[in-house]
Amino acid sequence: MAISTEAAPAAMPAPIEKYLEHVRVERRLAARTVELYAIHLAALAQNAAAAGLALDQVQTAHVRRWMAQLHGAGRESRGIALVLSCWRSFYRWLGNEGLIGANPVQDVHAPKAARPLPKALAVDDAVRLAELHDAEADPWDEARDRAIVELLYGCGLRVGELVGLDVQPSGTARGWIDLDAAEANVLGKGSKRRLVPVGSKALEALAAWLAVRGDCAALEAAGLRDPGNAAALFIGRNGTRCSAHAVWKQLRGRSLKAGLSAPVHPHMLRHSFASHLLQSSSDLRAVQELLGHASISTTQVYTRLDFQHLAKAYDAAHPRAQARDEGPPAGGGSRRGNKNGHS
């Protein structure tokens, strides 16, 4: 019997009614949460009744079968996990009340969700964002924000690595840019240092930012009379180091001004950096080093993005992939391969 996700019935078994009263009064859960609990527990009662079982007779095998039915019906892993969490909590409460000896849901887990692909920009969109010149912005802000975009996209830095950069290397610096060597020295995850090459466009943007970085009148008003001695490479108008939140906010606004279809966040530029490098070089090990990934399996997710890019190029360009006026091929299968995996 398929589990219902509609409204809970007006009357439910007494143990469920008592449990809902418990979470509503003693645990003080939100009304919406109690409502969802009621729906999930009503489904449990319906499945138990259909199997000819009392609630305290449900076994782990029954729960696994009902979850398999949910999965087969297309329910997402997260939704199944929420149902299991509710049922597990209910049976834990029954155990605490001395009404059952073992929790039948304890060792049942939702199927693992497929790892989502990272979101990367198309090359044209990334270039459009990097080349944006906002004539309406304050020149000081514009110089800083352009340098930020160039480093995020051109070097694949994490936002934490970016805001940790200092103007000059020192014993306490988390990272810095060596303009002469065209390298970024950053402190990544696990306190691991790595060197990342800085491209010509990023170097130009950095030089333009450094030329005006100490010229903001707001810095003097904040009492920072010699901003050239301040440690942070990227600072706000109060003279303090830019925060990750500030970079997120600036990048979001900049991407909308560039006319991109969706707001861009810093990690999307890191994903774009990796994906676009793989599209051009296919050198997975080099991309791993540039990103600072401890395991190459973390980097391999970008090969799936690269394959999507290649598949779209194939569909758009190859004469045997293009749709024809006579309609789809016989059998209705995909031109790139059918459901049996043939290609």
Rank of each mutant, 00 (worst) to 15 (best):
L256K: 10
L121H: 06
R115Y: 02
E204D: 14
P9N: 03
K257C: 01
H133P: 00
P13Q: 03
V198S: 03
A244D: 13
I16L: 02
A61L: 10
L291V: 02
A50M: 04
H133S: 09
A258V: 03
A50E: 10
V287A: 04
H40T: 07
M12T: 07
A230I: 15
C155I: 10
A294G: 03
E131Q: 13
A184D: 12
A182E: 15
D226I: 09
T172W: 06
E26W: 09
A50I: 02
E26T: 15
G188E: 10
P104C: 00
S297L: 01
Q250W: 09
G190V: 09
R78H: 12
A11R: 12
L55Y: 05
L260T: 12
H267R: 09
A232S: 14
V163E: 01
P118G: 05
R254L: 03
N238M: 13
L179N: 06
V287G: 05
I148N: 00
G156A: 09
Q59R: 09
G171C: 10
L55R: 04
V105N: 01
R241K: 09
G332M: 08
K249Q: 10
C155L: 09
L233I: 15
I148D: 03
A181L: 13
A14L: 07
H309A: 13
A317T: 15
R144F: 11
R158Q: 07
V287E: 03
R304P: 00
L206N: 08
Y37V: 12
L210N: 06
D315L: 13
P116S: 08
P15E: 02
R213H: 02
C216K: 07
G52E: 05
D145N: 12
P13T: 03
I39Y: 04
A211T: 01
G292N: 06
V25P: 04
L195E: 01
L179D: 09
A208E: 08
A143M: 10
L55T: 04
L224W: 11
K192M: 00
G171F: 10
A31H: 12
H40W: 08
H342E: 13
A217C: 03
C86P: 03
W140P: 15
P227M: 15
